[in-house]
Design a protein around this nucleic acid. Structure first.
Lengths: 237, 237
DNA sequence: CGCTCATTTGAGGAACTTCAAGGTCAGTGG
DNA sequence: CCACTGACCTTGAAGTTCCTCAAATGAGCG
């Protein structure tokens, strides 16, 4: 547990943005809002929230031995960078996501894709709690199968064309972020490219093409409007 | 549970090969060889083994509601075929693998990549058993995280070059099959291509290249010899 | 041996990457 | 208020990798 001194935030004070807007922050205990005593138990086995600024490392390679991570606000990426500089992003974790079952075995590093707040949860404690409380158990199970499902979709996505990958990603992100009117992509386009196995240039060109065909439009910066969901969904197949 | 009448094998008698050679067949209860009463419990909640011949469908799309699958012998593939005919193989399951947590939610079909024998295990029964027996629980957990780890590696593999994908796949398969002297690929090259997101032609060319560089050689049919593990591993990065 | 189907090989084209340059935007300092 | 800066995104042109289509070869089976 080299870099896990939970008392201190590893973030450095070189950003001005305020952390986690209220409407995206998620509290772990709140998932079990109807049971105060369970909430108290859960509070006891969590550490944090710990804050990290964008691009800082939350967990380096496989240094996370005994903890699961819960995203309170912001976006976390799980990724691997090769010696040649190429980077693969395996997953993005959004507020409310619990993950980290595989961290102990894979040399994936966990990084802040935006400014984030994360909770560290003792794996063993959570497991033994789960064996006593069915709600916790089924929550853990569904969190894991959710992740597995997303992984499988990610795999299938990687053998489609660039345009299809981008359309699918944007729509999925829009859904995961709560189907707001506009899709405000919270992380860099390079992150998306690395997630989709494309170059930044190809990503940019694909977005341009989607815009030219009228499926989306750029509102401002990374703020997009998904115009034609029907055609987007058709592209995704 | 449309097509799950467990009493009958869905295989059709158009193959001559004998099912599952003794040395690859794995019994589910045997995983808990030191506890006869647990073994008896496990036997009670399983149905099968059910036999399927190569290319037959074990579970169509999301018809598997309440069961997990355990591979006794042979290789099972989890895949999706698009309307345009393109097929994605998300995973291969080998003897000893337990899977199916996501089957209820994804429209992935489960098919026999070789002649296979599979067990059907009641999901709920296994879960409630797990809540009473820690060994079962930790087995389920490790089976699931294993699958998740493989999924993540699969994702990262998909953004590498064809040659790297093939080298990695062959070596991994060799490891999963027990590091025998020869790698006898048990399923078709088209299956590998669909798993790796390549065409059959590109796969074939990659194998030819690997052979020309002396990293592997074709012994007979799909029987390969991995000659230079050091260089293979170097290619995998 | 002769069938069939899987695999291999070749040639040409499409998709994506690479390299290089230009544009945009927010923050910074005059 | 406006130029300056650096990070990020966009665009263009050339090069590579992989795919598509077509044909040949080879392996397995009756």
């Amino acid at each position: 547990m080299a870099n896990l001194d939970l008392g201190t935030a590893h973030a450095e004070p070189n950003h001005s943005k305020i952390f986690g807007t209220a409407d995206t922050a998620v509290c772990f205990e709140q998932l079990f809002a109807d049971d105060v005593s369970l909430q108290r138990t859960l509070s006891a086995l969590q550490r944090g929230p710990v804050r990290y600024y964008r691009d800082n490392i939350v967990v380096f390679e496989d240094d996370l031995e005994d903890y699961l991570l819960f995203v309170v606000s912001g976006v976390v990426r799980s990724c691997k960078t090769c010696k040649n500089g190429a980077r693969n992003i395996v997953a993005f974790y959004l507020p409310g996501d619990l993950f980290g079952w595989t961290a102990a075995r894979r040399s994936l590093s966990i990084e802040a894709a935006t400014d984030v707040e994360v909770l560290f949860l003792k794996r063993d404690s959570l497991l033994s709690l789960a064996s006593r409380d069915g709600r916790v158990a089924s929550y853990l199970l569904s969190a894991t199968t959710n992740e597995l499902v997303r992984c499988q979709e990610h795999i299938m996505l990687m053998s489609k064309t660039a345009k299809c990958r981008v359309a699918t990603f944007l729509r999925e992100l829009w859904v995961r972020l709560g189907r707001a009117k506009y899709l405000e992509v919270p992380f860099s386009y390079q992150d998306i490219a690395d997630y989709l196995g494309l170059t930044g240039e190809t990503l940019s060109r694909s977005i341009t093409e989607l815009e030219r065909s009228g499926l989306i439009s750029r509102v401002a910066g990374r703020k997009l409007l998904l115009r034609n969901h029907f055609e987007l969904r058709r592209l995704m197949r």
